[in-house]
Amino acid sequence: MNDQWILDDLGSVLDPPTEHAPAEVRQRVLAGLTTDRSRRITWSIQPVWRVAAVGGLASLVLAGLVVISAVRIGDHGPAATAEAAEILHAAADAARQAPAGAPRSDQFVFIESEVWYPAAGERSGSGLMRSWRSVDGTRDGLVWTEIPNPDGRNQTAIPGCQNGRAPVWGEQGTLREDQTRACQPDPAYLPDLPTTARDMLSYLETAAAEGQDADSRAFAGAGRLLITHYLTADTRAAVYEAVALIPGVTAVRDVSDAMGRSGVAVVREGQGVRYDMLFDPSTHQFLGWQLGASADHSSLGAQQTRRQAILRIAVVDAPGQVP
């Protein structure tokens, strides 16, 4: 089709001078992502999902934090600060001593957490969430939330993915037998994860999505693994030690999690987003993960957008079974 040629030619004449839109456009969009214009978000979190009043809640959360400056370690550039590394290595040591073996593929990973959302409306606070996800991703799981959705429903099935197909959801959070969609299994346990810090870091960097720098990807990827997956003792230790190798990771004292538990945080800020990885200061156990707009994000100021405190992670034999 020759008119494609002439259309391409005209298009090239009209092309922008640069491949990408100016950085301000990206900043404007990212700033917009911390406030939610779609009131009804998702059944499990809708009642409490509200935009935090700028300055109010955020300043409470961030009050009294001390950020330690970065120091250079070895030849790997400015890794995590000494204080952050100390927190992470203590957490790794504790993880190695806690028995956590590999689950069977037909089991389910039970995760109990408290999820907090910023509130500026009539509802505020946090709610308990329990999930049962298939170890290998092929079996139907379940998610239960303390706060019901607008239809009064507390639970929804998680479709397992078998032979590339998964059942679709019906009206009441149940799965339809008569209709499937294409899918990829989403295992709650990844048997082949690296067990050394360096390999884990490479994994977190390369397994992450494009568009962010490797360090941000690795840090966010580590947090996501910790709150969504079952990790064996040595894998968990490797995640913590990998985080200690990420440049720009700092320690922040006296941070409270979504349950109000006080902890120490290992923090990374970048591209307008701040991630906190929280640990218990005495047991060195992982407490939770939270994120928000970073303080230097001028148009909004510091703002927490989501906090999730992990209460229990266990392996059970059936969805709905509470250990």
Binding site: I41, T42, W43, S44, I45, I111, V115, M129, S131, R133, G137, G141, V143, T145, N149, T156, I158, P159, W169, G173, Q184, P185, D186, P187, A188, L190, L204, A207, A208, A209, E210, R217, A220, G221, A222, R224, L225, I227, T228, H229
Partner: peptide
């Protein structure tokens, strides 16, 4: 319609390759 609630717990097999 994708039921977003499930996204709460369905982490990625590979954290970034979403």
């Amino acid at each position: 319609m994708v039921d977003g609630g499930v996204a709460v717990v369905t982490g990625s097999a590979e954290p970034g390759k979403l």
